[in-house]
Design a protein around this nucleic acid. Sequence first.
DNA 1: AAGACACAGTGTACGGTAGACACAGTTTCA
DNA 2: TGAAACTGTGTCTACCGTACACTGTGTCTT
Lengths: 226, 226
Amino acid sequence: MDAFEVLWGERGAPRRGPRPTLTVGELAKAGIDLADREGLGAVTMQRVAEALGVTKMATYRYVPGKDELIALMVDTAMGEPPELSHIDGGWRPQLKAWTMAMFDLMRAHPWALRATVGRRVTGPNELGWVEKALGALAEARMDGGQKMDVVVALTGQIRAIIEQAADTSEEDIAEGWAKVLATRAERFPHVVKALAESEQHKSRDQGLEFGLERILDGVELYLSRQ
Amino acid sequence: MDAFEVLWGERGAPRRGPRPTLTVGELAKAGIDLADREGLGAVTMQRVAEALGVTKMATYRYVPGKDELIALMVDTAMGEPPELSHIDGGWRPQLKAWTMAMFDLMRAHPWALRATVGRRVTGPNELGWVEKALGALAEARMDGGQKMDVVVALTGQIRAIIEQAADTSEEDIAEGWAKVLATRAERFPHVVKALAESEQHKSRDQGLEFGLERILDGVELYLSRQ
DNA sequence: AAGACACAGTGTACGGTAGACACAGTTTCA
DNA sequence: TGAAACTGTGTCTACCGTACACTGTGTCTT
């Protein structure tokens, strides 16, 4: 049983033996709850098992190892992709809605960022999200590779905004960058200036909005040139 | 001694006691070598210490913990930011050169992606990179927050491309997505189509190029509207 | 009906991890 | 010439993922 099978294979009830007391779904949910409340570092086989009232070795009956549990958590947390087809106005408002939905999701589960770096197996929900985004672009005059590149750019934007928000949260910026910039302002004049000017509109949704509109503008311009 | 001090404080030679046999720089370099060769998972205090010929506890004389060592590795691997002022043509070619330079860097040290998720302290080199990018935008008609948003969008694009490349490397795509799409093509028709069409031009630099040009187009359009 | 079989959850054990702490040796300052 | 400050070492603890043997349970086959 590998990660692929855990994510994509359906689990028929076993023919013989005692009934399983858990399901992979419950396992994933327990992990997600733990990660939401205490961060990804708190997700250990021990604690997940505790939350479900079994010993940690019991979890290995459902999942071959921790990596696969995390993968399962990610795909479960991602959930069903949103329906976009009812949104009027073509690909642009649809992609915007898609991006916002994923942004909200990632903000609700910030640990998912850390859990989705490096090589991993794509789960059904995650692939469903990609499918929806590509569906929004179905009529656009670009080849498939370029459509995929647009989707990649959007996910990159989401991640970047959330990570920047994590880096520059109120207390961090106060005791981090500010501490540096106070003593070394002459070495980073542009950073100092940019930070000073951005004090006013500090909402992170605004940062997402701005970058997102630039990307969509760029795509629109590209399409209008074809 | 916290992460901030490790990254930003200079370490004067101690007044008394035996000479330190190492420097924080050597520590960082040993960690980087290890991570480059065997991945971030191979970086343990034990193995870093071994590579330097000391016991693992000796490393704690230079660095308060592993997190700080990783932060140091990241900032060291990032290195001095490239000089952009000599590049003609205004902010756009400069930002493009900046992005390409960072892309090359991240490809040379793929572990840096995993090491730069979540809350962390920004080091001097990393801040220097941001400074250079903002410098390229110094004359642009945007406020500082928007300039910062552009930089964030560019870093997001770099990360997204590299992670996508890791996910969809040749063998992974063959035994991962392809395996799914073969049996469930009807569920993900747009993904199937996009992947088929993108078979031809599979170079990842092309993916970076495309997304990057869209972003820069979007920024340019925004500036032309001001 | 009864045994064989497949499976679930438990308990124990192991190698590896980060890091705390006490200690011995070394260099410099008072 | 101590005393003080500092380095690297050895030992120890708590925790991690996970391998493996075992007991108990439900079902299929004879």
